[in-house]
Design a protein around this nucleic acid. Structure first.
Lengths: 333, 333
DNA sequence: GTGAAAGCGCTAACAT
DNA sequence: ATGTTAGCGCTTTCAC
């Protein structure tokens, strides 16, 4: 069923119907009565304008693209959900892709979305280490919001977590509760702003409290060798001459693996009285016996704010770049 | 940059370029040399055809819609990831929406996707209890694959888990290991095929082994009152005259809440030697101290198969309805 | 108040 | 082996 059919049945022109459907009836002085007739027929006949024709004509797709590292990661899934809900309320659809933190796939996706799929805007968790790709002129017309991570040297729109502050808050909290020998498990490679900021927050908290940053206490875990690296690190900590009293883990997936490893008998004793803290709160922490300190990342807010910001830019079509930093919430069990 | 510009620069017609770009160069007998020139220029100039114009002309969007209950639920997030990957390999994009198991929203989404957004196909986890909505003629042209749940009386394409068999396998396994007083925590309302099948699998396993189905052992948990219902149920089981020796939970989110509740001192003793089993395997079970029996649902396979099936239907444009039932994998820790 | 007609950028049937 | 042309279904300027 198309506009032309409708026009014939009703005895009006395509123009008139189109105007009414786009809410411009009053603007063009179409009588209330006519408008009512048109709208009524549209509902009755279940007419819906062809999306492609409309998009071709207007240049707007009412679609937004989202690129995340991994949509099966709870953190991103929650953000995606919130973005989707916000967009839906505003008549926009969401298309989602996982980049797996692969630079090339990310670029491919961005190109695909902008060139071929014609999204009106993009929200991306970028894995890139240099901003040049996004600075190309051909991307200028499509607004992009970067979330979760900051691209060095790139002044644009960001919605991120206060990784530095959140990390510092946890470590500070530990120190306040008399934990002073705090080991930190971070990731390697450390090329993502989020993890770098968290590590810096850890260091800053130590220094602020007059403690030393001990390199031996900083353990770097490679994600692909996660279990192996953790085992090695735990062993090293056990054999070190200084006993740790707390363990601060920068990522909840690493924390999960650590907890799994701590069940092994070679570790369980030694670490039984070590306080565990983790950046990011997951449900596991509420179920497990050991009380864990963590912080909640406001994923819902992050999704909502980034989507709203993007919609604002799309609609006002002009706006200054803004960076929104969201605070975490400390949880001590 | 558009086709016309390209045509001018190269001195060829739009037609020729279009043909080459769509891989029909050989079919139309365009010389290798010319084709090479065109393809080269396209890469160099970063030309990409306007998606809307193409879609308008061809009637194909190269987009597939996915409706799940909740994209922030790990089970669906994993499926979504797998679907996305499969589609991406085939040049298709994915748009995702969460229905929150709201019938009206689901219908709205389907209508929106098909009428307005022009998806080439749909994959849906349906919350509907009657199939009439999907049987409307106006949806006939768009292929739909239903996943995870079966719509009663609706013969169409399904990719589902063997909920009945998987459930039966777990209960059977329990019985084989001398657990005979098995309580079952199921959900209410029980209007979704997946949960009904799981409950039936539980009952069938008992009967097959000559055991009675005791209504007092079947506890119904309402999701919105989850913690409260669980507390009530656990209390009831404690006060019953028959002591249970195993607890089979039909959903991992309920299981998580149960495990949380079992930490309470009023329950911990009584249930400490009760074997816990759960339909669906989540990472929590590998971290927690209590060894839990569960089964893995092949989410990746489910996503891959449903996406592939949909693509097959889209491309061959004709095909008989098929139902794929995927088996779960038992895990005993 | 309402309608005719041009054209968004592409594809494919039909020339040549 | 390559070009001409007629739309796909909609929006919007301009004319009545």
């Amino acid at each position: 069923l198309q506009l032309e059919d409708l026009a014939e049945r009703l005895g009006y022109s395509k123009t008139l119907i189109s105007m009414v459907l786009n809410g411009k009836g009053n603007h063009y002085g179409i009588s209330k009565k006519t408008q009512a007739i048109v709208l009524d027929a549209v509902t009755k006949l279940d007419y819906a304008p062809n999306k492609f024709a409309k998009a071709l004509r207007t240049g707007k797709s009412y679609f937004v693209g989202l690129i995340v590292t991994d949509i099966a990661n709870m953190f991103y899934a929650q953000i995606a959900k919130s973005i989707e809900a916000t967009l839906f309320e505003n008549g926009y659809g969401l298309m989602v892709f996982s980049s797996n933190d692969d630079d090339e796939k990310e670029k491919l996706l961005v190109e695909m979305m902008i060139n071929q799929q014609g999204v009106d805007g993009l929200i991306v968790v970028s894995a890139l280490k240099v901003p040049s790709f996004y600075q190309q002129k051909r991307f200028e017309k499509t607004p992009i919001i970067f979330i979760d991570r900051i691209l060095p040297l790139h002044k644009t729109n960001y919605v991120v977590i206060d990784n530095y502050g959140g990390s510092m808050e946890i470590v500070n909290h530990l120190i306040t509760h008399n934990f002073t020998q705090i080991s930190c498990f971070c990731l390697t490679p450390m090329d993502l702003s989020a993890f770098e900021d968290r590590l810096n927050g850890y260091k800053a908290a130590l220094l602020k409290n007059g403690l030393n940053v001990e390199e031996a206490f900083i353990k770097r875990i490679n994600f692909s060798d996660c279990d192996c690296d953790i085992e090695l690190s735990l062993t090293a900590l056990m054999e070190a001459n200084k006993k740790l009293d707390a363990l601060f883990i920068l990522d909840s997936r690493i924390a999960t693996s650590v907890l799994k490893n701590l069940k092994k008998k070679e570790f369980s004793d030694y670490f039984s009285d070590v306080k565990i803290a983790c950046f990011d709160d997951i449900e596991l922490f509420t179920v497990i016996n050991r009380p864990i300190i963590s912080n909640i990342q406001p994923t819902q807010e992050m999704g909502k704010i980034s989507a709203q910001l993007l919609l604002d830019i799309i609609n006002e079509s002009q706006r200054s770049k803004s960076t929104v930093v969201l605070s975490t919430k400390l949880i001590d069990r």
